[in-house]
């Protein structure tokens, strides 16, 4: 099954770190929301590694 990246809005402090490390520009930050374009996302996990608060998770 394909893995997907998900953002947990309860943990997220919308610092935009995930946006900066995404190699395919699949993530945008709008106000206090992280929006992930699932079509662009390659599930590389860069955003998961960098997130200071553990708000990005790879899910099955």
């Amino acid at each position: 099954m394909k893995m997907t990246v998900e953002n947990d809005p309860d943990k997220c402090v919308y610092c935009g770190g995930c946006v900066g490390v995404c190699p395919v520009q699949a993530i945008t930050l709008k106000d206090t929301k992280i929006i992930i374009d699932k079509n662009k996302c390659i599930n590389c996990g860069a955003c998961v590694s960098i997130c200071p608060v553990g708000a990005m998770k790879l899910k099955k």
């Binding site: 935009g16 770190g17 946006v19 900066g20 490390v21 190699p23 590694s49 960098i50 997130c51």
Partner: peptide, 25 residues
């Protein structure tokens, strides 16, 4: 800022290299 997309839209790759990026809190 680090989440810059403007430069990328105009053809300059400013992607952060994870090895050279720190996570701060």
């Amino acid at each position: 800022g680090v989440d810059s997309l403007t430069a990328k839209m105009l053809g300059l790759n400013t992607k952060l290299d994870l090895k050279e990026t720190d996570s701060g809190y």
